[in-house]
Design a protein around this nucleic acid. Structure first.
Lengths: 234, 234
DNA sequence: CGTATTATTGACTCCATTCAAAGATAGTGG
DNA sequence: CCACTATCTTTGAATGGAGTCAATAATACG
């Protein structure tokens, strides 16, 4: 079913997705095993906690959230994933996913199937490095989140906005204007804040001229001052 | 310098360190590139933030802490590493270490050198899986820490003690009695609590009959009740 | 258009921090 | 071996940041 395949070398995301820094031959090698682009809707599960690991996924469009559930049924939003970013690493170690991934809006993605990974490791060693690189990047992000979790509410929200802005920029989207596909509740959950606190702080940031908020649309007006709020994180 | 080499197949840690689940031939293959065991003292840096990535390290004895520094010079203890555990993953993505590692006491470790990794990926594909497994495990730990960072102080400390106990057990040490090579300050830093809060809670746990504290020696008396404190995490 | 979900805003409360001071422990050198 | 110092720990009291509760307003949705 060749019409069903994604050709990495023709993909608009090729510079930000997996094949970065690989040779043409290597990309072709990957193209052979990368599975068809799939489309799913807002609220759909990409995978659930406990699901068998099927492979690493690359988001082509839309966004997703990573969810861990505790035994009281509380959701914890671990991360937001944007176009061009990879997910699925939480299943790499145990063959079972350690958390769930849910679409925040209509989204499409590719799959690097688990069962072809060993073979790829041998044929495309630089892909292995690339995967480790991504995996390491995720850990650095986790590190930042962890450091951040000890900081006051204002800094957490400021960092969240800056981080989104930067990641969107890196992917070629506007860094100063974007729609958050998250409720105040979800933002608060992700940052460990009450939804009321998120609401109050967004208002404060707006009053201070740092951003403009209209519902879920955010416009960053003064990135410098926003950054200044989180000196401590550098 | 063969006398300088660690033979993985003769290593007491072989079941908990890298070679888990590998064939004899594969272990031999690794043995060839794993570098000499090194010994360092309390307070010594294993690597610093910004250092070039030299490889993945396996702790043979002693313990270490992973430190991130923010621009105000505050240390953030990201993690504690115990014997048999691997470190260095924070340098895997960028070739530069994203945080520092410091010995908490006299310790010894082996090195899987970075420059032999590509070669190993090709010759020992299952090692690659094994490394990904470890790397994924670290992410799951980070996930737990992240979920935990939103919980009240009591739960954080309880989880910290339980987690240490379990990890020590897995490595063949006593799970009910151990010495914490960390000050109250450091525990607090790691958990995002004031050192006074740590002190008060340890006292409270002792008063409640959950543990015995004597300086940095901890004895777990009632693991069940301790666990009960963190129902929410499961 | 009406209903459900999401967001804002205010008042009150509480957990953990900060400040402060005294007590314990470890390490050092005379 | 003891005194002396530096570091670490305990404990109390006061403060404050963010959570909770509650009521209203705005927005999305069928």
């Amino acid at each position: 079913m060749s019409h069903n395949q994604v050709i990495c070398s023709n993909c608009g995301l090729d510079n930000i997705c997996l094949p970065r820094g690989l040779s043409q031959a290597e990309i072709d090698n990957i193209s052979k095993v990368v599975k068809a682009k799939k489309t799913i809707q807002r609220g759909d599960f990409i995978y659930r906690e406990g699901d068998n690991f099927k492979g690493i996924l690359a988001i082509k469009s839309g966004s997703a959230k990573l969810i861990a559930n505790d035994s009281h049924g509380n959701e914890h939003i671990l991360n937001i994933l944007l176009p061009g970013e990879l997910l699925g690493f939480d299943g790499l170690s145990t063959e079972k996913h350690g958390c769930a991934a849910i679409a925040l809006e209509t989204m499409t993605f590719c799959i690097l199937p688990a069962d072809s990974m060993d073979q790829l490791f041998q044929n495309v060693p630089s892909l292995t490095r690339e995967l480790f690189r991504h995996s390491g990047e995720k850990m650095l992000e986790d590190k930042n989140q962890l450091v951040l979790s000890k900081r006051p509410a204002e800094e957490r929200l400021a960092y969240f906005l800056i981080s989104l802005s930067e990641r969107l920029k890196r992917r070629g989207f506007s860094s100063s204007e974007f729609k958050l596909s998250l409720t105040r509740q979800e933002i608060g959950n992700h940052l460990g804040l009450a939804l009321e606190t998120v609401s109050r702080l967004l208002k404060k940031f707006q009053d201070d001229g740092l951003i403009m908020v209209q519902n879920r649309f955010i416009q960053i007006k003064d990135i410098m001052s926003l950054r200044a709020l989180l000196q401590p994180l550098d």
